[in-house]
Structure formats: C-alpha cells, structure tokens
C-alpha cells in the first residue's frame, strides 16, 4: 500500500472531500426544491434549478483532481470520458432524430447525463482491467 503522503492519495482525499461538500449542498437544495414546491414564480423556477449550482463545484472538483492526480490515472479518466461522451452524443443525436409526433417518446434530458455516467464508469472499469 502506498504512503498516505503519496501525492495521488492526497489528491484523491481532496477530491472526495470536495465531492462530499458538493453533494451535501446538492441534496440540501434538492430537499428545498421538494419542501418549497408551492413557491410563487420566479422563486419556483429558481428553487427548481438551484440544485444544479453545486454540480458546478463538483465539475471543478473533477477538473482539479485531473490536474492533481498522476498521469496514468488522468489518462484513464480522460479516455473513459471521451469514449462515454462520444457514445452519448451519438445515442442522443440518433434518438433525437427519431423523436416527434407518432415516433419515439421524448424522455427527460436528464437521461443523457445518466447514460454518460453509466458509460463512463463502464469504460473506466474496462480500461482499468486492461491495464493490469
């Protein structure tokens, strides 16, 4: 096991703390969205989209982790994200062309994010296994 002072371990610890902070705020805002569902406009819209704000911090946490971790891990993460982003884009465009009256149903835009995350994790798992 590597030392706790290894730069990659320190980077990972900072990343986890930042993600916990981002997700804590996210869930508080999400709870606020549910509790204050009867707010008048424009506050209803503000409370509805507010949970997206801590995701900006989560995104910055990922970007900082990429800068702080070692080169091989960075390559794995970026390769997996590139694969997931490319496949998600193709799926989104393909499905989007099939949407319309009498054709495919129109799901929530959030499904793109879910598809991307699942593909990213699957790609990370595959790349990690192949690197052994």
């Amino acid at each position: 096991m590597t030392s706790p002072q290894n730069p990659t371990n320190l980077a990972y610890r900072r990343f986890v703390l930042r993600m916990i902070a981002a997700l804590a705020v996210y869930f508080v805002l999400l709870l606020g969205r549910v509790l204050f569902a009867a707010l008048p406009q424009p506050w209803l819209t503000v409370s509805a989209v507010a949970p997206a704000l801590p995701l900006l911090y989560a995104f910055s946490a990922i970007a900082r982790f990429l800068g702080e971790t070692d080169e091989f891990k960075r390559k794995m993460i970026v390769d997996a994200a590139a694969f997931a982003g490319g496949v998600t884009a193709v799926l989104a465009v393909g499905y989007g062309l099939g949407e319309g009256p009498g054709m495919l149903p129109q799901p929530s835009a959030l499904i793109d994010f879910a598809v991307f995350m699942v593909l990213w994790l699957a790609a990370m798992f595959t790349i990690k296994a192949r690197a052994r």
Partner: peptide, 16 residues
C-alpha cells in the same frame, strides 16, 4: 508501492 511513493504516482501506474 515503495517505487510509487518515490516517484509520486499511484501503485496502479507502476503496475501498468
């Protein structure tokens, strides 16, 4: 792990 610590990378990097 020793080598990983000495060069400041993860053990996974040394394995690869």
């Amino acid at each position: 792990a020793d080598l990983a610590d000495l060069v400041g990378v993860s053990r996974q990097t040394i394995v690869a």
